[in-house]
C-alpha cells in the first residue's frame, strides 16, 4: 500500500485550505485514489500560520491525521519554521522562493522552490499564488495528474476566474517541469554529490 502524507502551509488568506481541497478532490474523484483531507479550524485557522493536510492512499485511509509528512508545501516563513521539523528525512519540501528563507536542507530532503506569489502578481493578482503553487506541486511531486487537477477546479474556484486559475496552474506547472529537468541534469552530472539538493524522489 502506497501512502503519501502532504501538508500545505502558509498564512491565512493564501488559499492554503483550498490547495488541499483541490488536490484531494482531484485524487479522490479523478485519479481513483483514497484522499482524506483535514484542516485546522477555528481561531488558529485565521491569520498567522495556517495548515491543511491531505493523506493519499491506494487503500482506505484509516488514521485521519498526518504523522510525518512526505511532502511539505510552505508559503510563509512562520509556517515553514513551524512545520519543517516534522518533514520526513526523505521528504519533498516546496517553498515560495520570495517568502521563505530555508535553513540548510537536511538528510535526503528534496527541495524545490518557486516564486509563486511573484508569478501570480505577474498574472495580475496575487490571489492566484496558490494555483501557481499547485501547478508546480503537480509537476515536481508526481502525486496527482494534471488532468485531475484541472477537472477538480470548477466549484472550488469562482467560475468567472476559472481560466485565470488554469493559467496560473499552467505557469506553475511549466516552472515545475523546468525545475525537474534541472534536477535531473544536476543529478546526472554529479550523482554522488551529497549536496545535490534536488533529486527526484522516485
Amino acid at each position: 500500500m502506497k501512502k503519501t502524507e502532504i501538508r500545505f502551509t502558509g498564512f491565512g488568506g493564501q488559499g492554503i485550505i483550498r490547495c488541499a481541497l483541490i488536490t484531494g478532490k482531484a485524487l479522490a474523484l479523478f485519479d481513483n485514489k483514497h484522499a482524506t483531507m483535514n484542516q485546522a479550524i477555528g481561531p488558529e485557522a485565521r491569520g498567522s500560520a495556517c495548515a491543511s493536510q491531505l493523506i493519499v492512499s491506494d487503500e482506505r485511509v484509516l488514521y485521519p491525521y498526518i504523522t510525518s509528512p512526505d511532502i511539505l508545501v510552505s508559503m510563509s516563513q512562520e509556517a515553514y519554521d513551524k512545520y519543517e521539523p516534522e518533514l520526513g528525512n526523505k521528504g519533498i519540501l516546496i517553498i515560495d522562493t520570495d517568502l521563505v528563507k530555508p535553513k540548510s536542507v537536511r538528510g535526503k530532503v528534496n527541495m524545490y522552490s518557486i516564486p509563486s506569489t511573484r508569478f501570480a502578481e505577474e498574472l495580475g493578482n496575487r490571489v492566484f499564488a496558490n494555483l501557481v503553487m499547485l501547478g508546480f506541486f503537480t509537476a515536481v511531486t508526481n502525486t496527482v495528474s494534471t488532468e485531475a487537477m484541472k477537472k477538480a477546479l470548477p466549484g472550488l474556484v469562482p467560475d468567472r476566474f476559472l481560466d485565470r486559475n488554469i493559467e496560473a496552474f499552467d505557469k506553475g506547472y511549466k516552472h515545475g517541469q523546468k525545475a525537474l529537468l534541472k534536477t535531473k541534469k544536476a543529478a546526472a552530472k554529479k550523482p554522488a554529490a551529497p549536496k545535490a539538493k534536488q533529486k527526484l524522489k522516485k
Binding site: A20, K25, L29, H34, T36, N38
Partner: peptide, 9 residues
C-alpha cells in the same frame, strides 16, 4: 469533529 471536518469522496 474529525469526521465532520474531514473531506473524502
Amino acid at each position: 469533529e474529525c469526521v465532520g471536518h474531514m473531506h473524502e469522496k
